[in-house]
Computed example of a mutant assay.
Amino acid sequence: MNFRLRENPWRLMLAVNAAVLIGVFWHKITLPPYVPYIHLLVDYHFGFTKRALIGAVVSLFTAKVPVWLVFALGGTVWLITAGLFVQLFRRTFGFEHKHLPLFVLMAGSPFFLKNFMHTLGHFDIYGCLFAICLLLIPARSLAYVFLAALFSIVLVLIHHIHLLMYVPTIAVIVVLRHYLVHGTGRQNVAVGIASLGAVAALFVTAQFYGTVPVPEMAFVAHLHSRMADPSQTKLLNFGYIWYQPLSKEIWDTWQRLPHNLLGVPVFALLIWLHTPLWRYFRNLIAALSIDAHRHIVTAAIIIVSLGYLVMFAIVFDYSRWISNWAVCLFLILHAVKMLPALKDTPSISADDRKTIVFGWIVTLIPRVGIVRAF
């Protein structure tokens, strides 16, 4: 058995990743879920409110929200996302030995499932979940475009920052899986533009008209009435974010910028550790059989990256943003693999010593974090 593990370290990495995930989970449940919990309390009691969809759905089932629901709901969504990603990888690549390095560098990346475990209860994972669903289901008709628009609307209602975080990636998946296959006929284009317009209009409404129309004290009192344990008033400390204007968020971000920029070298190092994966992605794009597809994929990656650059200037949760940016690239890679290619792209070498070292380092890093690296 030991000999077999030495011969195939990638399987051992998978086992170690599972152990690391368990450790991250046990650490996570010891921390107070300030922001995730308050999102379960906020609903549409005072009318249309930004960031209130999840809380509104929870309110349909229970009038009092226990703290453990953050971990139960977040854990359930995490398990569904992880299971669907495994299914996606199996369908796109398969689990032959030659594809294990790619799977470890994706599924075992501190950017991905491990960081989603650390941010359990936050809303980022919903964007990833919906994008994976769109990669799994057939893209045969305009119903696919409508479904993508519906997913995007739900994401903006969950949190309007999804307009920059996962909606662009969803749009890229729709373009690569539907429009490049079925063409850009008048009806196709009209539905696409209408969908983008509807999502954009909803974002503007949420951003500028989703503020709670009552004094903060009345708002917090309502949240307090929904708590299963009213004594945990510290969990309501973040009620102010429903009143904070965009200008204040930008000001806070730029005030923290000098300190937060200290984490950029760490982010750069983490990205570099995924070099075999990025090299494979580059070769995958180069192998596409149609020149226009290569240009569209390159432009799509730039657009998605620019969206995250804007997020860096607006909100200071840098560790989350860089992690989700990497996840978006992982998902776009799967969409690119589905496009016609001139030849098969060679898999990441499972025997290359440097790649194995990268795989072990990526495996042993438990997470990236929320605001600052680690």
Rank of each mutant, 00 (worst) to 15 (best):
R226T: 04
A268L: 14
V315W: 09
F130M: 11
N2I: 09
V362C: 05
A300F: 06
Y308W: 02
I365D: 09
H222P: 02
F61P: 07
I290G: 02
V70R: 03
F151N: 09
Y308A: 10
I54H: 04
L53I: 07
V20F: 02
W325Q: 13
I302N: 07
W78S: 14
V181E: 06
L262D: 07
F123D: 01
P66M: 07
V310L: 15
H39C: 01
K248H: 13
A56H: 14
L147Y: 05
R91E: 15
A15C: 04
F25E: 04
L288E: 06
I132Y: 01
H293A: 05
T184P: 00
I322P: 03
N188A: 13
A350D: 04
Y144H: 03
H27T: 01
L40W: 03
F312N: 05
A326H: 09
R372E: 15
A72N: 04
T49L: 02
V174L: 10
L155C: 10
F219A: 08
A313W: 11
T355W: 01
I332M: 14
L134S: 00
F203A: 10
D352T: 02
S109D: 11
V35C: 05
W278F: 14
A82G: 12
A300K: 05
G74K: 09
D252H: 14
T253K: 14
E249T: 14
A218H: 04
F146N: 03
G307R: 05
N188S: 08
F208I: 09
A131V: 06
I303H: 00
C128D: 12
H224V: 00
F238P: 00
W251D: 15
A19L: 11
H99V: 07
L176A: 10
Y318E: 09
T253E: 12
M106W: 05
V189T: 13
V58I: 15
V104E: 04
V67I: 14
W68G: 05
V35D: 15
H97V: 11
P110E: 06
P230E: 04
R177P: 11
I296H: 06
V16H: 02
G197H: 01
C128M: 05
F111T: 12
Y179W: 09
Y308F: 15
